[in-house]
């Protein structure tokens, strides 16, 4: 109960923060909130099941593109609803056909999915509508976007907390431990994975949709930028993808680190990104939180 109260208080504090910060700092807050939402939503499915998905940008980009297509014909809440529905439908379709794959096959497929969606949209725009770039002229201030993004991040973390306590969470953990055992103990593998994947993908789609008005101009190459997928994975893994607060703990420092690098070392940023990947995988395979636990256990043993 206290934990919930603290989380809600923190959320309230974050919600009034825009009053006290400059435009640039607000931009930083939006970026942090987006990546916390992305990494948490990603971990909702991948954290427990250990299915590493690189499809983040496929959904993220779809969300942004939906806003670009519909922003002039529908009111904004309806546009968001459409984006969520499209994201969910796409996740169902993709999930049904691919969640039987596991290990490296799943990783490769999800990586290909982003490319597939990008090429499909390009093909459609080129041959059917005959345009490619689309414009988003919505009267949303940076504050509006921040609040929506913050809400999404809160929803992603809240949903994860809730799912962890339900049968679905238990089933996901069982699948992550051993799929065969899980199946034999009566867990409906396909359904469980599909539900979690769809929830996760819908949230990611909404993050793309909410963030897109800041770009004004959208084309497939801009919104399907694979770096988003990689950053999301590395952030979640850094913090610890199977922990409730892990993605947040990974996303915020990494986001700030990358911002700092792009300001101070604009030419060498990709090198740091690559090194970071390697470091996370080799040094902290289970994330910072688990690493701290190990360290504490080790110190405890030495103390005795």
């Amino acid at each position: 109960m206290i934990r919930l109260a603290i989380a809600l208080l923190a959320l309230a504090a974050l919600a009034v923060l825009p009053r006290f910060v400059s435009e640039y700092e607000l931009g930083l807050l939006i970026g942090m909130a987006s990546y916390v939402a992305l990494a948490s939503a990603w971990a909702l499915f991948s954290g427990h099941t250990h299915y590493i998905s690189l499809a983040t940008v496929a959904f993220y980009g779809t969300g942004a593109y939906t806003v670009a297509v519909l922003n002039e014909s529908l009111p904004y809440p309806a546009v968001l609803l459409c984006a969520a529905l499209i994201g969910a439908a796409m996740a169902l379709l993709v999930g049904l056909s691919t969640l039987r794959l596991s290990g490296i096959y799943f990783v490769i497929f999800t990586f290909g999915l982003a490319e597939l969606v990008r090429q499909l949209i390009t093909w459609y725009e080129v041959s059917i509508t005959g345009t490619l770039g689309r414009y988003i002229f919505l009267d949303l201030t940076a504050r509006d976007i921040y609040w929506q993004m913050l809400a999404l991040a809160a929803i992603a973390i809240g949903l994860t907390a809730w799912i962890n306590r339900t049968r679905l969470g238990l089933a996901l953990r069982a699948i992550g431990d051993d799929e065969v055992v899980a199946a034999h103990s009566g867990i409906h593998l396909a359904r469980t994975k599909l539900v979690a994947f769809t929830i996760s993908a819908t949230l990611i789609t909404l993050v793309g949709a909410v963030g897109s008005p800041r770009w004004v101009y959208v084309e497939p190459l801009i919104v399907f930028n694979p770096t988003v997928s990689f950053l999301t994975v590395i952030m979640a893994l850094l913090g610890g993808a199977n922990r409730l607060w892990g993605p947040l703990v990974g996303a915020i420092p990494l986001f700030l680190l990358f911002e700092w690098l792009s300001v101070n070392f604009p030419d060498t940023y990709p090198i740091f990104l690559g090194l970071m990947f390697i470091a996370v995988v080799f040094v902290l395979p289970n994330g910072v939180l688990a690493g701290l636990d190990d360290l504490r256990a080790w110190l405890g043993r030495r103390g005795k």
């Binding site: 640039y24 931009g27 970026g31 770009w215 770096t227 604009p266 030419d267």
Partner: peptide, 22 residues
């Protein structure tokens, strides 16, 4: 004062906010 936008519009928008307000 020069920044890298990493070819990402999100980063670019933030960099402009930084140049203008910070």
């Amino acid at each position: 004062i020069e920044y890298d936008d990493r070819s990402s519009n999100e980063d670019l928008v933030r960099a402009i906010e930084r140049l203008a307000t910070k």
